[in-house]
Design a protein around this nucleic acid. Structure first.
Length: 408
RNA sequence: GCUGGAAUCGUCUAGUGGCAAUGACAAGAGACUGUAAAUCUCUCGCCUUCGGGCUUCGUAGGUUCGAGUCCUACUUCCAGCA
């Protein structure tokens, strides 16, 4: 209670804007610390980043942590008692919670978030879904306990205010790429209605608590320009502290979709691009007005043996006994400690849980640092007026050898 | 030397006479983007125009329409007795 009372409104400062218009560098002041933008928010769904301790996160320059209201729903009252997410998790830095809206899709229609044109799109059949959406909210089955539960905008706000992150997200419905235009219209209207209800409930609780927490509105609208611009206008007039850019994207359209949204939204408010972090997505997001991004890919892919390097991604399994560092140019603790590809591969393949866990930690730290560093370099290069050259160099090196480097 | 038992894909393993033969691990390829994910998918005897063809279950014979499965001998290994 006492600690929470220090919460203040966000203040977002823009230091410099790209000539192209939407991209900018700046900083978001939160009650805990300042987030220099653009920034990557490390995903710690349940208040911890899998296998990575908080000291290591600070050491690699992590700016903020994103946790999930859905996963923390039952712990929320306890988190409140302990003084909020930053304290509870031991992270003690800027935090954001997602509303649980993502689970509408992942437990429901269940399709990957970003899909390239050639990938087949298929929809989960209605009866196999674990989540069902109505205007009230989402009825879902807990995949582990089988328990029937319900979360709507009001429930999500209650959970998130208990968790007490610096930034909360309005409850939204993320559609899948398999959903057609008509369904996206429906989901967009619902998301707008939920945005209003989220805001109302958030403000009620905030007023009763007597201190300020911050809420971002979340935009949906699928891949259609008319929907994206419309919903951006609608949410843009509402009293949100910032905006979450949501949706499942065709990679080829990502930039356009973000541009449609951000041309309509108030320029001076911070924007968070939900759930993306591959290098190309980072550049597209930044240029089109995203100030922060979050993603599970760096840590998940690390655990699965996919390692990021300046020359592209590699499959660690192809590097048995290899004496090279993961990435010669990397300044992460794993590389600086001299761990070689071969040693890390051996840990990963080890029959002991301790060694596997060590691998997960070392590789997660590497991929996270790799990702965070791109954001740092974007900031530096924008200041030096060398952003375009930096981007071109980075992307051509990263993607040119994609195939061959993965094959070794 | 005698008496039991055992020999199947890199390893371990399943296998009532109709089997190219089970499962696991290893290996190879791919996926993963607001974490149902320390996960998932595919390949894993050889060849293939993807219909199929060929060669396999220690070795050599035999019984049978048909043998990894039954019989005989041999080889190797394990256990017990000498």
């Amino acid at each position: 209670m006492k600690e929470s009372a220090t919460y203040k409104s966000l203040s977002f400062t823009i230091d410099k804007t790209l000539k192209s218009g939407l991209g900018r560098i700046g900083s978001i002041k939160t009650a805990h610390d300042e987030i220099k933008t653009p920034a990557f928010m490390t995903v710690g769904t349940k208040g911890e980043v899998r296998f990575v301790d908080m000291d290591s996160l600070h050491q690699i320059g992590a700016e903020a942590m994103l946790s999930n209201g859905y996963h923390l729903r039952k712990l929320a009252p306890e988190i409140a008692k302990q003084g909020g997410l930053a304290k509870y998790s031991g992270w003690n830095g800027p935090t954001l919670t997602d509303s649980g809206g993502f689970q509408v899709m992942s437990l429901g229609s269940g399709l990957g978030k970003v899909v390239s044109m050639d990938r087949k799109i298929k929809q989960t059949s209605e009866k196999n879904r674990l989540a069902h959406v109505s205007d009230e909210g989402v009825d879902f089955t807990d995949p582990f306990t089988g328990e029937q539960e319900f979360i709507g905008p009001e429930e999500s706000m209650q959970i998130q205010t208990n968790i007490g992150a610096d930034i909360h997200m309005a409850f939204d419905e993320l559609t899948s790429l398999a959903d057609n235009y008509d369904y996206n219209v429906q989901a967009m209207f619902r998301t707008e209605m939920w945005a209003e209800r989220s805001l109302k409930k958030h403000q009620e609780i905030r007023d009763s608590l007597g201190y300020r927490q911050n809420l971002y509105g979340v935009l949906q609208g699928g891949r259609w320009e008319d929907l994206r611009r419309r919903t951006a206008k609608v949410l843009g007039t509402m009293d949100f502290d910032g905006y979450g850019l949501g949706g499942a994207f065709l990679k080829e359209q990502l930039g356009d979709i973000l541009r449609w949204c951000n041309e309509e939204l108030p320029f001076e408010k911070p924007k968070h691009l939900l759930g993306l972090s591959r290098p190309d997505d980072i550049f597209i997001g930044f240029e089109n007005g995203a100030d922060t991004l979050d993603c599970v890919a760096p840590t998940r892919e690390a655990r699965h043996g996919r390692i990021y390097t300046r020359d592209g991604e590699i499959y660690l399994r192809k590097f048995k006994d290899c004496p090279e560092l993961l990435d010669e140019n990397c300044d992460c603790p794993t590389c600086r400690s001299g761990w070689t590809k071969g040693q890390l591969r051996a840990l990963w393949k080890s029959p002991t849980l301790e060694e596997k866990a060590l691998y997960y930690k070392l590789s997660s730290i590497h991929n996270l640092r790799f990702t965070i560093r791109i954001f740092e370099e974007i900031r530096q290069n924008v200041l030096k007026n060398s952003y375009e050259a930096y981007k071109t160099d980075f992307l051509s090196r990263y993607y040119s050898q994609k195939k061959s480097s993965m094959l070794k």
